[in-house]
Structures are given as structure tokens and as C-alpha cells.
Design a protein around this nucleic acid. Sequence first.
DNA 1: CCTATGACAGACA
DNA 2: GTGTCTGCCATAG
Length: 119
Amino acid sequence: MEFETRVKIAIRAIPRGRVATYAQIAALAGNYKAARQAARVLHASSDKDRLPWHRVINSRGGISLPRGRGFEEQKRLLRKEGVAVDRSGRIALKEFLWEPSPAPSRAAREFVRRLTGED
DNA sequence: CCTATGACAGACA
DNA sequence: GTGTCTGCCATAG
């Protein structure tokens, strides 16, 4: 599968009310060094991609789009879903950064199974 | 093959 | 906090 496709999948996985960084998306897409490419995908994507593009921000916790070229729109969309954005476009990562829950390991599933007595 | 292009990130002054 | 510099790498041409 193409990197670009995986980036889109990762972005669509960001829950409402949370944000993810470009680097985070790149890592989820399989290349932790390709943050710029994640950005490129968004830059090139159109509305038909149905991407929650506004949930992607930079590692400094800020909106990367310049004022007058998407900044205000992104801020509006984020606030609409409950993400606090200050005047300079900053978001408190401690509070709103998406932390994907890792898939439970085989060992963890086994542990739970024995605890609960399920099969 | 080569070059250019990024809504980046991290290090540093 | 700001500004600059460098490394980064998937695509497009």
C-alpha cells in the first residue's frame, strides 16, 4: 500500500475533539521521518478525501497554515468540536493530543483471558 | 537518472 | 518567546 494511502487512513482515525501531529501521522503511516510528506498529502488532498484535516497540527502544538490561508478555518473547526485553540493558534497537547491505544499484545490478551476465565 | 517541492521537526543562538 | 539552519523523504516532472 502506498504511503499516501496510509497517511489518509491514519488521519481518518483521529477521533473528534483530539489532534495529532504531522510526525505522529507519518509514524502511524510507517515512516516516522516523513512528517513533511504527511503535510504534502494534506496540501494536495481535496475535499472528496473526507479527511479531518483540521485535526493535524505541528509538533509545537500549533496550526501550521498561515493566516488568511486556512488558519482561521482550522481554528474554527477545532473549536467547534471542543478543542481549545488560543489566539496564536496553539493547542495544549497535554490535553488534546490523540494517544492511540496500542493493539493488545498476544500476551496481554492471554493474561486477560485467564483473569476473566473466558475463552 | 536528476531536481524541485513542501500545512515538518529538532537543534541552536 | 523568535528566527535561522539543516536533515528529512515521498512524489511529480
